[in-house]
Simulated scan of single mutants.
Amino acid sequence: MLLEGKSVVVTGGNSGIGEAIALAAAREGAKVVIDYVAHPDETKSLIEKIESSGGQAVSVRADVSKVEDLKNMVKTAVDAFGRLDVLVNNAGIETRTSVLDTTEADYDKVLAINLKSAFFGTQLAAKQFIEQGDGGTVVNISSVHEDWPMPGNTAYCVSKGGERMLARTAGVELGPHSIRVVNVCPGAVDTPINDETLEDPEKSKTLKNSIPLRRVAQPSQIAETVVFLASDRGSYITATSVVVDGGIMQGSVGL
């Protein structure tokens, strides 16, 4: 198994892509810490699902925009499993507002949950990795919009652009400690955040026609990429972004 015995923390781990990552990591032998801020019943059900399949998982309620909560999240992994090997910075939100309409509160919330959390999560995980002495991996769930503009969702794009440089710069800084930092950049994924589009026949058709593979991703497909990158098979990949988008960033070419 690709993650046998590894201790893995997944932020926002009880729904959508985060849930898929938690399940995939557990299937590959990881001991999983599921961070959440809402829906404790869903978190409990997810842990039961992992345990019923022979895996190990615990939960921690941590607001990733708060450094003290992030510290507690790392501590939970160490207390439960003796160490931390992989941090997946998955938690994220968007407001779908333009640069003209975004309020200060909107901006602060998006940047705190999407970028501040990834920055300080990386910092705290790296300190734990260094203390352990044998390296570790941070995987940030970024977006194609770290590089591809999305008018009408400016704060989100700014946060993802920041994650792009976080992976590059932190990956270079931390490489000598055998710590890897890499982004995964999904395109359109079948998660609740896209329900409005996918449930509208015309919008769904337009979206799928913009994707060369003519389909949106399933969360499990993003999760499998994360598992690969977190495993020894991805051990020479760092300070970069891996795009998993069905070609959508190039999809307008020739259409």
Rank of each mutant, 00 (worst) to 15 (best):
E94H: 14
V37D: 10
V110W: 01
D106L: 04
P40Y: 07
V60F: 11
K49D: 10
A26D: 03
V58S: 12
V60P: 08
K109P: 06
I93A: 12
M73Y: 04
V88Y: 05
E48F: 06
V88Q: 07
F119C: 01
V99Q: 09
D69Q: 09
L84S: 13
L100N: 05
G121E: 00
F81R: 14
L84K: 00
R83C: 01
G82P: 02
E28G: 06
V64C: 10
S59V: 01
V33G: 08
I93M: 14
G55R: 05
Q56G: 12
S45W: 07
A118Q: 09
D79T: 09
N90I: 00
G121D: 03
E51S: 05
S117K: 03
F119P: 07
L23R: 13
E94T: 02
A57P: 08
S52M: 12
S45M: 12
K44Y: 07
E94R: 10
A77V: 03
L100D: 06
A105V: 11
A24K: 01
A112R: 04
K66Q: 06
K66T: 02
D35I: 01
E68Y: 11
D79L: 15
Y107N: 01
G29S: 08
A77S: 04
N90A: 05
G29R: 00
V58P: 10
K31C: 09
V78M: 13
R83H: 00
N72P: 02
K71M: 12
N89D: 06
A38E: 14
A25G: 04
T97G: 12
A25R: 01
K49W: 09
D101V: 01
L115N: 04
K31P: 00
G29P: 02
L100H: 06
A22E: 05
G82A: 12
L70V: 13
D101A: 13
D41Q: 14
T97K: 15
S59N: 05
G18P: 02
A57I: 01
V99K: 10
K44G: 11
V78H: 07
V37M: 15
L23T: 00
D63N: 14
A24M: 09
N72C: 07
V74W: 12
T95S: 15
N114S: 06
Y107W: 15
K75T: 14
L87T: 02
S45T: 01
V33K: 13
D35M: 03
D79G: 14
S117N: 07
N90R: 08
S65A: 15
